[in-house]
Simulated assay, not measured.
Amino acid sequence: MTGSAPQARTPLPGRPVLELRNLTRTHGTGPAEVHALCGIDMAVQPGELVAVMGPSGSGKSTLLTLAGGLDVPTSGQVIVEGRDIAKLSRRALAGMRRRSIGYVFQDYNLVPALTAAENIALPRELDGVPTRKARAEAMDALAELDLTGVAKRFPDEMSGGQQQRVAIARALVGDRRLVLADEPTGALDSRTGEAILALLRARCDAGAAGVMVTHEPRYAAWADRVVFLRDGTMVDQTLTARAEAQLAAEEPR
């Protein structure tokens, strides 16, 4: 991952990895109707990490589930690498999620019957990677996160922080062009949280696009851009100091 992230495929000029076009998600009808997202427009370029912030119930997690093809918008489009995922067959969408999209769930979502190493290797094996190669990649990912000691443990034999790091390793292993992370540092101490953000940052620097939900400004500072949601609406977005410094360094003198 940090030291062994795969070489990113060269993107088409000017084409974002992820585009959300007038994205709306409504739950319920009548008096019980809830507008989780209201006309969101957002594009994430290769190499860019975007942090999404906002109060509870602002639509942050809904945005991620729609971007990852785990839910269907009420209206609008989700475009991943130029493909409208609503137009994909269930089989094609499942293949895209395995190959191109890494998703870090807030509740880890590990398979209880599989060990840590098996959980990480599973998406690769489902995509046809030979078992021996997939397991070797999983062990490399665990080593990078200082987790080789839990390789043979099942989720209920690991702490919450260990499960979170295994989930992150699973999301980053392989050639994932889009990484979606819902509070990826929630169960981690500050030092480990910083290490996880360094991994996400390295994957984006290698050419992937990343979207991360966080409530911590210190973690959002690792991003290039911060998007603020409130009541399902994008109310503001701003470049981080990191991105501003990089742009200043690239300006001709």
Rank of each mutant, 00 (worst) to 15 (best):
M1W: 03
T2D: 12
G3C: 00
Q7L: 10
R9F: 02
P16F: 05
E19K: 14
E19M: 11
L23Y: 03
T24S: 08
R25A: 08
R25W: 02
R25Q: 10
H27L: 15
G30Q: 13
A32T: 15
A32W: 06
H35Y: 03
L37D: 05
I40L: 12
I40E: 07
D41P: 10
M42S: 06
A43W: 00
A43L: 03
V44F: 03
P46V: 13
P46Q: 07
V50T: 04
A51E: 06
P55C: 02
P55V: 07
S58C: 03
G59Y: 04
T62Y: 06
T65C: 04
G69D: 12
D71Q: 13
V72D: 08
G76R: 13
Q77D: 15
I79V: 15
V80N: 06
S89G: 14
R91M: 13
A94C: 13
M96E: 11
R98Q: 12
I101Y: 01
G102Q: 04
F105G: 01
Q106Y: 03
L110C: 12
V111D: 01
P112D: 14
A113M: 14
N119P: 11
E125C: 08
D127I: 11
G128E: 08
P130Q: 10
K133R: 14
R135Y: 13
M139F: 10
A141I: 13
L142M: 12
L145M: 14
D146P: 07
D146G: 14
L147G: 07
T148E: 15
V150F: 07
A151L: 09
K152N: 15
F154L: 15
P155A: 07
G160K: 12
G160T: 14
Q162K: 06
Q163K: 15
Q164E: 08
R165C: 05
A169E: 11
R170V: 12
R170S: 05
R170W: 00
V173F: 00
G174N: 06
D175L: 08
R176E: 01
R177D: 05
V179T: 07
L180K: 09
A181E: 03
A181F: 04
L188A: 07
R191G: 00
L200C: 04
L200H: 01
A206P: 09
G207T: 10
A208S: 12
A209H: 07
V213Q: 05
D224V: 07
V227D: 05
D231A: 06
G232I: 09
T233K: 11
Q237P: 00
T238Q: 08
E244W: 06
A245F: 02
Q246P: 01
L247W: 05
E251Q: 14
P252M: 02
R253Q: 11
